Amino acid sequence: MPYVTPEQIERAKQMDLLTYLQYYEPHELVHFSGNVYTTRTHDSLKISNGKWCWWSRSIGGRSALDYLIKVRGMTLPEAVLQIDGQAAIMLPVPPNAQEPINQGNLLLPEKNKNNDRMIAYLSGRGIHSDLIDYCIRTGRLYESREYHNAVFIGFDRQGVPRYGTLRGTCGRRFARDVCGSDKHYSFSIPSRSERQRLHLFESAIDLLSYGTLELLSGRNWRQDCCLSLAGIYRPKKNIEESTPPAALVQYLKDFPSIDSIVLHLDNDAPGRLAAKAIKIILSPTCTVSDEPPKRGKDCNDYLKIALKIRQPPERE
């Protein structure tokens, strides 16, 4: 096994994948569109804004070192020596590599020419067309060109996309965050006015399911703010030592007028534990009520029960 020094490892970490391929494997680099590149060997691997993501395997990274280990299957010493040996004879930087890279951008998948499969999938889960149309119109939702996933987007207060999550629409269970996502800015829908109440959900589909139930009940589905936690919140073993979910912390910082929170987390053990923890942590600062779905595991289950929708289980 070859030996590499900590200094060599640190140097190797500094090289991004686009630069590595431009210099040392230009035959492997393929321009895809705009500032997005792919590789000749793996056309589902996309490189953009200083990051790369291999969509078919749901793995990604920033550096060439990550790529050589995760994609090429090299050991750490082999990958370091591959980069370090090449860097020793580094050529002058080509003009297109001198442009600064915005490390803060998401590596969002390309949009499909239409949203038909995504709409059919969400409609099949009971989501009302008014909510789907609103999310598409406001840029919160679209269908990806590759694999036709539903892409849910989260924004910061300036309206900049900072988070993305994918949901499979073809009958196979698939859920992944987009490379470069910041969980502080998860999928959310604001109220029509400055409301002081926030509804909290584990997923974007649960959020839209709750909104659909409100609409079908004749209520204003945008009366209050709604936020997805981008997955299951896992508190520490000692709950009092836990911090609230990152998305919730950021939302309360951005909207300090909120003084009450309604939890609609899942009816399973992780969901009940998460609800208990959030109540304990936040009760001193605001009113927290726990309102899990009355039937089923989550809000979407409850919606499908209410609408008498029978869906085949998603394949793994």
Rank of each mutant, 00 (worst) to 15 (best):
V4T: 12
T5M: 12
E7Q: 09
E7K: 13
Q8E: 14
E10L: 15
E10Y: 07
R11Q: 09
T19A: 11
T19M: 11
Y20P: 04
E25F: 11
E25C: 10
P26T: 10
H27A: 15
E28N: 04
S44G: 08
N49H: 13
W55Y: 14
W55A: 15
R57L: 04
I59A: 11
G60Y: 07
G61R: 05
A64T: 01
D66C: 12
Y67Q: 11
K70D: 08
V71W: 09
V71Q: 05
R72W: 08
G73A: 12
T75N: 08
L76D: 03
E78S: 15
L81R: 02
Q82E: 14
D84I: 10
G85M: 09
Q86H: 12
Q86R: 15
M90L: 14
P92N: 13
P100I: 12
I101S: 11
N102H: 09
G104V: 09
N105K: 13
L108F: 04
P109Y: 08
D116L: 06
I119M: 08
Y121I: 01
H128E: 11
L131H: 07
L131K: 04
L131F: 04
I132H: 01
I136L: 08
I136R: 06
L141A: 08
Y142G: 00
S144E: 04
E146P: 00
E146V: 05
Y147Q: 13
H148N: 15
H148M: 00
H148D: 10
N149R: 13
V151E: 08
F152Y: 05
F152L: 07
G154I: 03
D156P: 04
Q158V: 07
P161D: 07
Y163I: 04
G164H: 02
R167P: 00
G168E: 12
T169A: 12
F174G: 05
F174Q: 08
G180S: 09
S186N: 13
E194F: 10
R195A: 15
Q196L: 10
R197Y: 00
R197Q: 07
S203G: 03
I205H: 04
L208Q: 07
E214T: 00
E214W: 02
L216H: 05
S217G: 15
Q223K: 14
D224N: 02
C225N: 13
C226Q: 04
S228Y: 03
I232Y: 00
K237L: 14
N238D: 15
I239L: 14
T243N: 15
Q250W: 09
L252I: 05
I261H: 01
L263H: 01
L265H: 01
D268C: 04
D268W: 01
R272C: 11
I280F: 10
S283Q: 10
P284A: 10
T285E: 13
C286N: 07
D290C: 03
E291C: 11
R295L: 15
K297W: 06
K297Y: 13
K304F: 03
K304N: 13
I305S: 06
A306D: 03
A306Y: 01
Q311E: 11
E314C: 05
E314S: 09
